[in-house]
């Protein structure tokens, strides 16, 4: 028979040992992790301390900032919707099929993510103004279609879409990777074409991923600055979005207004991230 005292001593010893061995682990892990969290909190706190409620109110009452806010909401929403419209079929194809050139397409889709934003804007500008013989895309859009793009609001949306779509494609691909393809196979044996299997089986399962992809695309579009500056310019009341407002306010020495707009963008980003977390898709948590 085991002596109860000896057993209790052993249990206590084991407990102590485990506490001693786990504590340094948690200290090191949380210490390293908190560095980054602290940095973000300090950045936000500094912004909040720098500006006052009066400054914030004065800034957001400016007609040019209100115009930038409206264009931001509109352009981000259109860019996000366009992104999900493209990302859903592209993500599905990349997830489900092995075809020649798949790796190349997969790499091309990622280029906007790794490319410096200014380069992307410059590339868009060159694309629209590159003469092909006597023909030029921007001239054709302006003169024949009567829909000029460069340095106008459509350029803002196109610049935002170019980057945000890449993030939406990644999200949709992961979404479809997580959906069992065998259900679509079974649907095909039951009488579905591939198209019907996609629309009736895969798509209804991907709604959380679609909302997540749209939200990520919207958030990316909100933060876009470089390509917009180069391709759409930063003309007040015309092509100005909140990210360019920060730049314009800084360039005329209005630091308070710049910080106020920054905080407004932080609030918008937080709302988007809360929505994303609330959806709990497992893609971002």
């Amino acid at each position: 028979m085991t002596d109860p005292n000896a057993r209790q001593q052993l249990e206590t010893k084991t407990k102590l040992k485990r506490t001693r061995s786990d504590l340094p682990f948690f200290l090191v892990m949380s210490g390293i992790s908190s560095c980054f969290v602290l940095l973000i909190v300090l950045l936000l706190a500094a912004d909040l301390m720098f500006t006052s409620l009066e400054d914030f109110r004065a800034a957001v009452m400016k007609p040019e900032i209100q115009s930038a806010f409206r264009l931001t909401i509109l352009s981000c929403t259109i860019a996000a919707l366009l992104s999900i419209w493209v990302a859903t079929p592209l993500g599905y194809l990349l997830s489900r099929y092995r075809f020649p050139g798949r790796l190349l397409i997969d790499t091309i889709v990622d280029i906007p993510i790794v490319l410096p934003p200014l380069v992307l804007g410059l590339s868009l500008l060159i694309l629209f103004h590159l003469p092909v013989g006597n023909w030029e895309l921007e001239a054709w859009l302006r003169d024949d279609v009567r829909f000029p793009v460069t340095y106008r609001w459509p350029a803002v949306i196109l610049a935002q879409f170019s980057v945000s779509c890449a993030f939406a494609v990644r999200t949709m691909r992961v979404t479809f990777d997580q959906i069992n393809p065998r259900a679509e196979d079974v649907a095909r044996t039951l009488g579905c074409t591939r198209g019907q299997a996609f629309l009736q089986i895969a798509l209804p399962q991907s709604w959380r991923g679609m909302i997540a992809a749209t939200t990520i695309a919207w958030a990316r579009a909100l933060g876009e600055f470089g390509p917009i500056l180069v391709f759409a310019g930063a003309t007040r009341m015309r092509t100005e979005v909140l990210s360019t407002t920060v730049f314009l306010e800084l360039s005329i020495g209005q630091l308070n207004a710049a910080v106020a707009v920054s905080l407004l963008m932080v609030v918008m980003a937080v709302i988007v991230l809360v929505v994303l977390r609330f959806l709990g898709t497992g893609l971002t948590s």
Partner: peptide, 13 residues
């Protein structure tokens, strides 16, 4: 052909 795969692959929605 009626097909029942090993994992059944029922439609979650």
């Amino acid at each position: 052909i009626g097909y029942v795969p090993q994992d059944l692959a029922l439609f979650p929605t």
